[in-house]
Amino acid sequence: MNMQQKFYWLFGGIGALLAIASIVGWLLQRRAPDSATIANLTARVRAWWVMVAVLAVCFLLGRSATIVLFAIASLFALREFVTLTPTRPGDHLPLVVCFYILLPVQYLLIFDDWYNLFAIFLPVYGFLLLPVLTASGGDTEQFLERVTKLQWGLMITVYCVSYVPALLLLQIPHYSDNLLLVIYLLLVVQISDVLQYVFGKLFGKHKIAPHVSPSKTVEGFVVGGASATAVGAALWWITPFTPLQAAGLAAVIVLAGFLGGLALSAVKRSLGAKDWGSMIEGHGGMLDRLDSVSFAAPVFFHLTRYFFEP
């Protein structure tokens, strides 16, 4: 099978899954028309159709469209983060620089195949530049807090998320379908989220972190995570990995994604919000969908780079 055929098989499969989810949602809604949980479930499925369609179109358009797509996703995620973070008028310049210079440059470095600068641009030079710009505003009130929050938001929403399209930079011997690697990562992370949510709703009894993320349960995590790992292993044919390696990497993705969801949920709550935004119906904001991705992407990238690039 060439890449094109694998792509159609994958998206055909995802379409079939979503069709089943839509039908189940429709049946459930007929049985319990007033249930808020089921209304949310059908809204989520509808939003999934849209997200999968957008991703499919971008992947078909190729490498550039995929990089641009994640740059836009970063923009929306950073927008949500900054909206919830208190800023002062003196933060205007660093904010403008984050949105209009640092974010585009980070993604341009992927276009440019410049991995060495990509990896240090925000953690080193962004880190050094932002406090300078903030200081130039002349406002020292809560200076360290303000700089820290902005840097933190930039690292999660831009740096970590940009590791998804950075998978296109990897040069793995006998493997050139890097777009499939992007799909693999997204699929395992999102299926893990969905299955943990579903199994948590069905059998969840023991909450893992009731104060941080009340919807995460031990049952949901174990059963959902194991199923997602199995799905990841079963998808070995779109990756350069053997089935066993695929299972191992999927398990790492699941774990990193879970921890990312947990950490970002804590951040969200400390900012006094339940959802990051409202742009994706039923899911909340862009960052509610990208929280696990932002943690899983760098880990998956570096493991693959370390073990599979010569």
Binding site: R79, E80, V82, T83, T87, P89, H92, V96, F99
Partner: peptide, 18 residues
């Protein structure tokens, strides 16, 4: 809501905010 944060008096470029 929030627009005074996006483009305070005296600035020219709006910061994207919801």
């Amino acid at each position: 809501d929030n627009l005074y944060r996006s483009m305070p008096k005296g600035t020219f470029l709006p910061v994207p905010l919801t």
